[in-house]
Design a protein around this nucleic acid. Structure first.
Lengths: 182, 182
DNA sequence: GCATGACTGGACCAATCGGTCTAGAGCCCC
DNA sequence: GGGGCTCTAGACCGATTGGTCCAGTCATGC
């Protein structure tokens, strides 16, 4: 991480901290200290400061989640198989990030300022994920209607299970999701 | 509200604001201004200040949710009927609180300080709700095993739908939940 | 070698944060 | 009517907040 470009280092550190404590729970100073970055660099790369950085962090995290979706559904034999793998991968992701951190996007953006930019972005990210799952669904033989319904249910279930996992501090909530849904 | 006792006024105002912007997103000054309460009163009723008030607000909100659960399942003819009514009631609750605010407990406590008291309390509240739903389930003819599974699924679904409702800024996410689950 | 850009380093700022403290208002009981 | 309590009212505090600003560093082009 020490040789990571400054901008990326800021984004990754910010994403981690925001997921742990929410947008308002993290001070700029803390991000700077943890990423060993001086203040000047932050406001060079993100002229609008904290909000800019938060959006960038959410974007980066959202892209990561899209990759996880692809990894889970890529080798899947049917939709349920892919969905199950996805839940297990997310459970592992939850564990390695400390067994507490929230869903990147909802943690960063739902807790953010009362700003339309933030609120629109949450919706956009969720739409991206859903669309990707729909895509995999149709590829795996579902009709467009079935795929849409299944994708909605899965995204909803994951968000719910993620909240439960935080509350109970156990990634098993995510692992148990497929059994509950299917 | 003007004739409400000071302590209750503080709790209700705090609950509303915390649901909107999360624990760290709300300053003590804002709660005081909106509830027209001087600082001294806050630290008289809640010697530990903001954290104390947040826990009291979460408790109060949690009790309110228990009442909503009872209202929904009380006159229900079977479990699915009760669950559907509950979702509709929550959708209305979501709308009248401005179409943005989160689930009281997860908004207040999941975003709170990295404090075991806060984290344990989220879990306790969710356990309370689940237990109450289980109780209604068995009363409506489900076996204990069925009731537990159905209650878990319903709580998970509600949390998920609530996140989706915030992201899409539409209470319909909550209303559509029963159709998705059953 | 020198000029020009991107980037770093950190001093500095006003505003806000949560919290403390004390003076006194209002009420009840003796 | 006075002693003692709960509660209100708000001035005040040090710490931290996000943000600005500029001098200095460095690599790259000429």
């Amino acid at each position: 991480m020490t040789d990571t470009p400054t901008k990326d280092r800021l984004i990754m550190t910010a994403a981690r901290l925001f997921r742990q404590k929410g947008y308002h729970g993290v001070g700029v100073a803390e991000i700077l200290a943890l990423s060993k970055t001086p203040k000047g660099s932050l406001y060079h790369h993100f002229p609008n400061g904290k909000p800019d950085l938060a959006v960038a962090a959410a974007d980066w995290a959202s892209a990561g989640l899209l990759r996880i979706i692809d990894d889970a559904f890529g080798p899947a034999t049917d939709f349920t198989d892919g969905a199950t793998t996805l839940c297990y991968k997310l459970a592992k992701f939850f564990d390695i990030s400390g067994g507490w951190d929230g869903c990147p996007v909802s943690s960063i953006l739902l807790d953010g300022p009362e700003n339309d930019l933030f609120r629109d972005k949450v919706a956009a990210c969720i739409e991206d994920w859903t669309a990707r799952v729909v895509q995999h669904g149709t590829r795996l033989g579902l009709t467009p209607g079935q795929a849409a319904a299944q994708a909605e249910l899965l995204m909803l279930g994951i968000q719910g299970a993620w909240v439960m996992a935080r509350a109970r501090r156990s990634s098993d909530e995510l692992r148990k999701l497929p059994a509950r849904l299917y």
